Computed example of a mutant assay.
Amino acid sequence: MTTDNNILFSFLQIHFVLLLSRQGKVRLTKWYSPYSQKERSKVIRELSGMILTRGPKLCNFVEWKGFKVVYKRYASLYFCMCINQQDNELEILEIIQYFVETLDRYFGSVCELDLIFHFHKAYYILDEILIAGELQESSKKAIHRIIDAQDLLVDEAKERANSISAIMARVAE
C-alpha cells in the first residue's frame, strides 16, 4: 500500500509461541524476542495461570503487559502466540490453525504425546512456518513437500549409518 510516496509495511511480529497442556505443562516454546531464562519462566507462569483459568466461552485474546496473547485450545493443548497491541489477532488465529493443521497432517491428528516424543519434528515444522517471529511460508503444499523431503533425508542418513555399522561389525569379526 502506498500513500503520498510513503510505503507502509504491515509486519506481524510474533514475540513467542507457547504450547501448554491443560495441566500447565509446557510442551513447546519458541522465543523470537530476547527474554532471560528468569523472564521466560515468569512469562510462562503468568500466562498459564491466566489462560488455563479462562472459561471456554471467553474470547481467545488476552491483554498482557502491553501485548496481546492470542490462544486457541485444541483437545488438551493450548496454542498461544504473543503479538503487539496493534497487530491483527485474527491473523494469528489463522496462523495457529495453519500450524495445527500441519501438525495434524504430519502426525495424523496431533496429540500431546506426539509433541512429547517427537518435539524435534514439531519444532522443525514451526521453523518452516515462522522465522524470526514472522510468517515464512503460507503454502500448505510447500510446507508438506519440505517436511517430506526432510524425512526422506533423515531416512537415507539412518540407512547409511546402519549399513556402515554393518560393515564395521563384519570387519571387526
Results as ranks from 00 to 15, higher is better:
residue 167 I to L: 15
residue 73 R to N: 08
residue 117 F to C: 05
residue 29 T to L: 08
residue 109 S to E: 11
residue 119 F to L: 14
residue 109 S to Q: 12
residue 78 Y to H: 07
residue 21 S to Y: 05
residue 172 A to H: 09
residue 139 S to V: 03
residue 126 L to K: 05
residue 36 S to V: 03
residue 75 A to V: 05
residue 117 F to G: 02
residue 32 Y to A: 01
residue 48 S to R: 10
residue 10 S to K: 15
residue 125 I to G: 02
residue 70 V to I: 15
residue 20 L to I: 04
residue 107 F to E: 02
residue 27 R to S: 01
residue 119 F to S: 08
residue 12 L to N: 07
residue 120 H to N: 10
residue 106 Y to E: 01
residue 165 S to L: 13
residue 147 I to R: 04
residue 132 A to L: 08
residue 126 L to I: 08
residue 74 Y to Q: 05
residue 37 Q to A: 11
residue 28 L to H: 01
residue 95 I to D: 00
residue 15 H to I: 00
residue 12 L to H: 09
residue 147 I to L: 14
residue 39 E to H: 08
residue 21 S to T: 13
residue 8 L to R: 13
residue 6 N to K: 15
residue 30 K to M: 07
residue 130 L to H: 01
residue 64 W to L: 03
residue 16 F to Y: 15
residue 95 I to W: 00
residue 33 S to L: 06
residue 71 Y to H: 15
residue 2 T to D: 13
residue 94 E to I: 07
residue 146 I to F: 03
residue 44 I to R: 06
residue 65 K to C: 09
residue 142 A to Q: 13
residue 139 S to H: 03
residue 21 S to Q: 05
residue 141 K to V: 13
residue 55 G to A: 09
residue 12 L to V: 09
residue 140 K to R: 12
residue 104 D to Q: 02
residue 30 K to I: 01
residue 73 R to G: 00
residue 4 D to S: 15
residue 45 R to P: 00
residue 51 I to T: 04
residue 36 S to E: 07
residue 10 S to R: 14
residue 9 F to H: 15
residue 12 L to Y: 07
residue 57 K to R: 10
residue 125 I to F: 03
residue 54 R to L: 12
residue 109 S to D: 08
residue 134 E to Y: 05
residue 11 F to W: 14
residue 142 A to N: 13
residue 100 V to N: 05
residue 69 V to Y: 00
residue 6 N to H: 15
residue 30 K to W: 03
residue 136 Q to H: 13
residue 98 Y to G: 04
residue 141 K to N: 14
residue 113 L to P: 02
residue 92 I to K: 06
residue 90 L to C: 07
residue 103 L to F: 03
residue 164 I to V: 13
residue 162 N to V: 06
residue 19 L to W: 02
residue 170 R to C: 06
residue 145 R to M: 11
residue 3 T to E: 12
residue 166 A to Q: 12
residue 11 F to G: 04
residue 87 D to G: 01
residue 120 H to I: 09
residue 90 L to M: 14
residue 125 I to C: 03
residue 112 E to C: 04
residue 123 Y to M: 11
residue 59 C to G: 12
residue 3 T to A: 12
residue 167 I to G: 06
residue 53 T to Y: 07
residue 8 L to Q: 12
residue 59 C to P: 07
residue 69 V to P: 00
residue 156 E to D: 10
residue 50 M to G: 00
